[in-house]
Nucleic acid binder design. Structure first.
Lengths: 214, 214, 214, 214
DNA sequence: AATGAATGAGAATTCATTCAT
DNA sequence: TATGAATGAATTCTCATTCAT
């Protein structure tokens, strides 16, 4: 009997971890923590359940890894924007558009925030290095605001964190609540026209707020 | 030992329903759908599990009732604002402040939105009378916008639904994500000063956007 | 406030018992002992559950009463046949036809036998007076057999109980198993032609067996 | 203390299925569908409840498998009779005796028929391949009848299905109703003499009916 | 006497987690 | 290392039965 090549060999450990993580992210995002099933993660990632436990620990640990991954992805995306190379208002526009688009295209980020806050943030408090992941973003926004202020485009004294929270607020709600908004108000972000409208509205609003003080 | 009042007759049917609903709202908000436990709802409401089933049907039905209740509460709050009696910008200010405060003080509303959207909105689609519950609010905002426009305070052509979504966006995010925001950016809406800051920021931003077009 | 006449007054105790018994018979026959629901019996009989308990005792007692009622009904039917007035072979024919028709028209008898035997006969052992209910039937069949034998129509020495069991066997199976017979062999006693066929077959067979010994 | 053999590996999958099926057949036969307990099936088969669910699905599915198994067993028994090798009347005699003995020795077949018909035959309608399981039997009986007719032993034109229903009728009733028969008429098939009597009676009756038409 | 309201004791079913190989 | 097989510990939901009025 010839030993058939183990299908697991296809993966080195790193790839296996990545597959599991992707499946877990999607599962937790789709079903929430309580609704997520290890079985489905195993099936989706092509790994056996014991492998998942051996790579990540228990369900909580896997969830923590997935949450961290969601943050890593969005911060990586923000980094590739190279905001520092743009004119201040273009940078802001780019950040707004990236944020909205990322929320829409990678819906697991929004869902994971949803889930984690439902759980009272008990997990994120424990992911030690997250603040570090963020700091680059805050710094970069700070630089843009300073530059904008010194060029006279923006008003003085805007806090980068407050600005980011504001942008995130405007982008997050229509995505996070797209199902209820559709049912209750009939608005649907899947409709391209409505999405464009909202994108424009948000950008205008943020820029107006940054500038609008003569 | 005083004979404790019989747990059965303590409730008339209406009060029993209300107690169960309150407990369910809190439970679903705290744990999400999957994490909610009928046992805990029974304990918190002082009813036995079978009574809950007899009053509301199964877990899904109870969840639907709780979700509906969350909407009813916020719409009732909005109604008592009597926005129509206020000057347009005061009305907007009042609506913003009410919205933010309601989100903070009745955190189950935000959590229920969270939960329902995690579930893909399958329940809200089925709550037949919700649109009706909303329509009053939209109408009232429309009246204010019209009045503001005709008085020259606001610009023309603002869609009441878009305005409401914008306000809700700005109020929702910092509350819904208060745990992650605290961990990631160190911002904490429980801190009264930060709350005031945000309340001011949101009001300014909304009014600026309504007015700011010379 | 005028006291409306209690709807229960409609029933004197005897009628109430009868209503409950009829509903119980139908329920146990339709669902078996384990599947029967006191709730449904209450609804079908128009009585409250506590009334049922007060009239009959617990589920077991009610079941025993229903089982007894099923036997009483069939024995009453047999009595009204007045077999003694008929010629022997006519009497047998009448008994066969009555038995088959009763099984078909009062399906609860067959179902109750089914159910009771599934339960190991634990209840019928306890219904004290049943043998008495039967004895009339056996005696009457004995008389017919004797008369038939002395007239030369039947052979000697047929045991009335064995004859009754034989007739019941032939009538019972196609009714008791009508659902499986339909699925497995495509035979359906609801079809009048097939019913007539079987009725004729059974009568022929029984009479042939009683006579056929030259 | 000797290390007991691990309960898990005791079974290979095939044996585990068989053990569960045997336990389920016995449980459903003894208690009916509603009275059957998964707990008891688990205990009797030496498997844990979750294993049962994993092998068979839910209670309905397990019941369907048990019902099917009951049919498979009796048809297998009939096949090993090799009726085709026997003289026509010997073949009929063998079929009658096998049927009665099978009903007595494998009481779950009768009970399962009982149960399934109580349930309205909803399950058997769904067991797709059952008709196929039967067809061999009907064909074989048809061959015997034809042979018997051409040899002059039997009369012409007997429908094999009707014959089988007749035989089954005569064998089924005394077994299916053994508890009520014992209580009501004092007849007990466990008594060997009474069993022999009945066996003889049934065989005589069937053969008389097949032949008796000069 | 009559019943709406209440529940204890279970039933089926699920799922994170761990063996045994 | 890798996994098919196994299960303890819940969890939802039900139902015969009994109060309290």
């Amino acid at each position: 009997m010839t030993s058939r090549p183990s299908p697991r060999r296809r993966h080195d450990a790193e790839a296996a971890r990545a597959d599991i993580l992707a499946a877990a992210l999607s599962e937790f995002a789709d079903y929430g923590y309580g609704g997520a099933r290890i079985d489905r993660i195993a099936a989706a990632s092509g790994m056996s359940k014991p492998m998942i436990y051996s790579y990540f620990g228990d369900k909580d640990d896997l969830y923590a890894a997935a949450l961290r991954e969601a943050y890593v992805q969005i911060r990586e995306g923000e980094r590739t924007l190279n905001l520092s190379n743009l004119a201040p208002s273009d940078a802001i526009r780019a950040l707004v558009e990236f944020t909205l688009d990322h929320f829409i295209e990678k819906p697991w980020f929004v869902s994971m925030l949803n889930t984690e806050n439902l759980r009272g943030g008990s997990t994120i408090r424990v992911i030690a290095d997250l603040t570090e992941i963020q700091s680059h973003l805050v710094t970069e926004i700070g630089v843009i605001l300073d530059r904008g202020a010194s060029e006279g485009a923006f008003r003085q004294g805007v806090d980068p964190v407050e600005l980011y929270i504001t942008i995130a607020s405007l982008c997050y709600f229509p995505v996070a609540n797209r199902h209820t908004l559709k049912s209750v108000f009939g608005r649907d972000l899947n409709d391209a026209a409505q999405l464009d409208l909202r994108r424009g509205l948000i950008t205008d609003m943020v820029l107006a707020w940054l500038e609008c003080r003569e």
